[in-house]
Write a protein that binds this DNA or RNA. Structure first.
Lengths: 207, 207
DNA sequence: CACGATATTGAACGATGTTCAATTAAATGC
DNA sequence: GCATTTAATTGAACATCGTTCAATATCGTG
């Protein structure tokens, strides 16, 4: 009791976040509770509330780390390839790889909801924005129409699509089981975005 | 107390499920609790456990209804259009429309997780499969390669992508705010799948 | 060494899911 | 019509959760 000084306030937060990551990875998002974290790091529940305002706070800060890690992984992949089309394929593969390797943590990022009115921290959006820019930078000019002004829209559409495939695959809501077949879905999608995109067929278009 | 017979066992389950839907729609997935449902339908918590084995069961059966409703909506749209390319665009628009209209219920379908080992009921998969078949049936032949043997893969890739865009949009994780701009993302995606798909560029392909 | 600051505890509160004996009302048999 | 079976419903209990907070123990400092 009292100030044990085993850890500084910052060390304790790191410890808690690392432990939280372990819990989530091992037993899924629902297993993440204040009390379990406290138990594992050898403190009382109350002590946790000095470093975190509540469970949402802890969760958001764990997610922040996950997103940051994901960004790092993708930026590494991006650096290791020359051809930009190739890069897009490898980025998608790396995204899927991360989702498969850190499934529960990755899902927590997208499934956690803050109470209405609250917003995720800025660094959160920063990392996300960086990911989309990575995609946008690797879009082949042939895919972006004449002016290229639609590049952000195309990048968003493409990456949201990659995300959708990964999410459904990882959640088991797709019939496909093997990693290879999910890869094939991603390849199929990317084929559509990497090929030269001709004029839209006026006949069947709606607006 | 005792057999009140205000409602048959089946009526009570219907009542509970309707109430559950209202709770979720109004206050989000986290607000759905056994006790709240019981409170609103004027029964004790224990009584609920005669019709539902637990909260997961109630949730799954609520989700079943939602998916069924979604399927109906899409099948209606499918019936109201002739051109198949047009149909795909309208199906995507209807999917987004449903997600926007019944946001919380729709999210519950994809965010709820059963404890490991348990599987969602068969009707669940039936409805989902029907949706993918709807998409597959409307894929233009030009989009499916020579043999058309890849149609299921293409349909899965396309619809998972549509789903991804809707999910990120509905969750507010996309910068885009307006419904119109989300529509534009869907249109951009569909443009890629509705246009004649030429041979894949061998140079930039990986496998 | 004493004092003030603060990290940490421990207990409390209200809420949750789930279980189950007890109770009560309907259905059935006579 | 009455007694007995059957089953719906209750109410209370238990374990867990998030969160708060007064009390306490320990540290840094004067």
């Amino acid at each position: 009791m009292g100030r044990r000084n085993d850890h500084t306030r910052e060390e304790l937060q790191n410890l808690a976040l690392r432990t939280a990551a372990e819990i989530v990875e091992a037993d899924g998002p629902a297993a993440l509770t204040m009390r379990e974290v406290a138990r594992r790091i050898g403190y009382t529940v109350g002590a946790l509330y000095h470093g975190f305002t509540n469970l949402d706070d802890l969760t958001v800060r764990l997610n922040e780390r996950t997103v940051s890690e994901l960004r790092l992984a993708l930026e590494n992949v991006n650096r290791q390839t020359n051809d930009s089309g190739q890069r897009l394929r490898m980025l998608a593969a790396a995204y899927l790889g991360f989702a498969l390797l850190h499934t529960h943590r990755w899902r927590l990022v997208f499934e956690h909801r803050l109470p209405p009115g609250q917003e995720a921290p800025k660094s959160y959006r920063t990392h996300t924005a960086a990911l989309f820019e990575l995609v946008e930078a690797n879009l082949p000019a042939s895919a972006c129409g004449r002016s290229g002004s639609e590049a952000p829209i195309i990048a968003t559409a493409l990456w949201s699509s990659v995300h959708g495939i990964c999410m459904l695959a990882v959640s088991g809501k797709l019939q496909v089981g093997t990693t290879a077949s999910v890869q094939k879905l991603l390849d199929t999608l990317l084929d559509r975005f990497l090929v030269e995109h001709s004029a839209k067929p006026r006949v069947t278009r709606k607006r």
